[in-house]
């Protein structure tokens, strides 16, 4: 310890302090600041590049994701449209069928009514015919009767019998 204290040179200490101080200041100004700044900016550049690459990747992912979403939506829409169209078709067909049925029924009913009325008319005509026929026959028979009594009777008999059939 004693020899050490003896060896301690105050002058050297002061010189060292001055030199170190000046050296620190000089190095800071001319070396460390530019070097550290350059390193920092280089690292920042690398970091930025990495970040932007990451960002681009993310964007790409987003893009594909949204593409997928769009495609899915379109598919769903198509599905819905198809379904709607099918339903419309169904309803159209069924309604058409119903209408046709109704019309057919109406026509049938009309036809039946027409047939009925025709039948009635025909019946009426027939009756009037039969009446006129029977009048004619009666006339003829009457004429014959007038000539032959027996025959006249027989004829009337047969005629009447025939007439009641109708």
């Amino acid at each position: 310890m004693e020899t050490l204290l003896n060896d301690f040179s105050v002058g050297l200490f002061i010189m060292q302090a001055v030199i170190l101080l000046i050296l620190i200041l000089l190095m800071r100004k001319f070396a460390w600041k530019p070097i550290l700044d350059a390193l920092q900016s280089r690292e920042d550049g690398i970091q930025n590049a990495l970040d932007s690459a990451e960002k681009a990747k993310l964007e790409m992912q987003n893009l594909t994701a949204s593409n997928d979403k769009l495609l899915k939506e379109a598919r769903a829409e198509r599905e819905v449209l198809l379904k709607e169209a099918r339903e419309m078709k169904e309803t159209m067909i069924s309604s058409a069928k119903e209408e046709a049925q109704v019309q057919a029924n109406a026509m049938i009913a009309q036809a039946q009514a027409a047939i009925e009325s025709e039948k009635k008319a025909a019946m009426a005509e027939l009756k009037s015919h039969v009446a006129s026929l029977s009048l004619e026959i009666a006339e003829k028979v009457v004429r014959q009767e007038l000539s032959n009594k027996d025959k006249q009777e027989a004829l009337v008999e047969s005629m009447l019998g025939e007439a009641t059939l109708n």
Binding site: M27, A31, K33, A38
Partner: peptide, 12 residues
């Protein structure tokens, strides 16, 4: 030190 690191700084 001044020479060596000064050169490095100038390079940047």
């Amino acid at each position: 030190m001044l020479l060596g690191f000064g050169a490095l700084a100038r390079g940047y």
